[in-house]
């Protein structure tokens, strides 16, 4: 199976900044490792000693419920010490630069920095300027690799495979780092990817990634195995890319009648938090086809796998 070679490859990676430059083998290694991790979450004693003595710090310049908490619990279940910088009450508000903030944190000794930032490329910049390993927990409209990994884990768990599935991604593709990471990841496994949303929210150049653009839900959903519904990000909607939420939900909300167009055993994903009645109807959100709650558990498992895999290996080799 050539697994030794795969793990070698992973161990030489200092950071995880996006799925764009992650190999299929690395993705499979993460997903395979997440399986025993998920078993641990379900146990009565949810702790293994693996990362004892390791430090993980989460720094979120944007709000988050599940990603930050899920990284924190993932670290704790592996016995790492996790700490969170609350940006809104930190010295960032006194005008400290990103680089100085990160340097300060680095000097406190943590091994891994989990970072979310509203600026595309911020984690990449930080990764180049710190000895800590950096995991991108979402940068601007660029990538959110761990969300895509947990989506892929959820798909594989229910479908038994990822290869060559048909996947529809619905909503605000333009602003969605979740969409971008999913496209990069799923395309590596030969998935047929379609997107649908308001024309103002479809970025140009998707065809170069092998993605098919549809402008109505029916075309996008017909025959697909997986529907990934994106959140309408009201915080990024100041410029009026669509007239109103009512109009959006009229045209682009996923409803039960759409599901009859999809493949028989199609599944629905949503990265959360949901705007019920805007991009997804409650009937679907609470129905059997939706994996939305399971995705949250899978998110912890996938992040445990990633933390474990990234903490191995000798630092001198990784820096090379």
């Amino acid at each position: 199976m050539g697994i030794s070679a795969q793990s070698t490859q992973f161990d030489r990676r200092k950071d995880l900044l996006g799925l764009k430059d992650v190999s299929n083998e690395e993705i499979e290694l993460i997903l395979n490792t997440a399986l025993p991790m998920k078993d641990i979450i379900r146990r009565e004693i949810k702790k293994v000693p693996t990362l004892r003595g390791k430090g993980i710090i989460t720094v979120f310049y944007e709000n988050s419920t599940r990603t930050r908490t899920s990284f924190e619990l993932a670290g704790k279940y592996l016995s790492a010490d996790t700490s969170n910088l609350a940006v809104s009450t930190s010295s960032v508000q006194k005008g400290e630069t990103l680089r100085d903030t990160i340097k300060t944190l680095e000097m406190m000794g943590p091994d891994i920095l989990v970072m979310r930032h509203s600026m595309t490329g911020a984690p990449h910049y930080v990764a180049k300027n710190t000895s800590m390993r950096v995991i991108n927990a979402g940068d601007g409209t660029n990538e959110h690799p761990t969300q895509a990994l947990l989506d892929m884990f959820s798909i594989r768990e229910r479908k038994g495979r990822i290869d060559n599935l048909k996947v529809a991604i619905l909503g605000d593709i333009l602003h969605s780092r979740v969409a971008r990471s999913n496209i990069y990841g799923l395309a590596k496994f030969g998935c047929e990817i379609r997107v649908a949303g308001p024309p103002t929210m479809i970025p140009p150049g998707l065809d170069r990634l092998g993605v098919k653009t549809c402008f109505n839900l029916d075309d996008a959903i017909r025959g697909v195995d997986v529907i990934n519904v994106l959140r309408i990000q009201r915080e990024r909607q100041q410029t009026g890319l669509f007239p109103s939420l009512d109009e959006y939900s009229e045209l682009y909300m996923l409803r039960p009648e759409h599901l009859s167009l999809a493949a028989d055993d199609a599944i629905v994903l949503h990265p959360g938090p949901m705007n019920r009645g805007v991009e997804i109807s409650s009937d679907i959100a609470d129905g059997d086809t939706a994996l939305i709650n399971e995705q949250v558990t899978n998110g912890v498992a996938v992040r445990m796998a990633l933390l474990f895999l990234m903490m191995g290996g000798r630092k001198d080799e990784i820096a090379a």
Binding site: I3, S4, T8, N32, P36, D39, G313
Partner: peptide
């Protein structure tokens, strides 16, 4: 039983061993 996550030499290894299910 898979004991990988309980090993005392994980950080001494250049490569991570694979974790399997218990």
């Amino acid at each position: 039983l898979d004991i990988t996550l309980y090993r005392d030499d994980l950080t001494a290894l250049a490569n991570q061993p694979l974790v399997h299910r218990t």
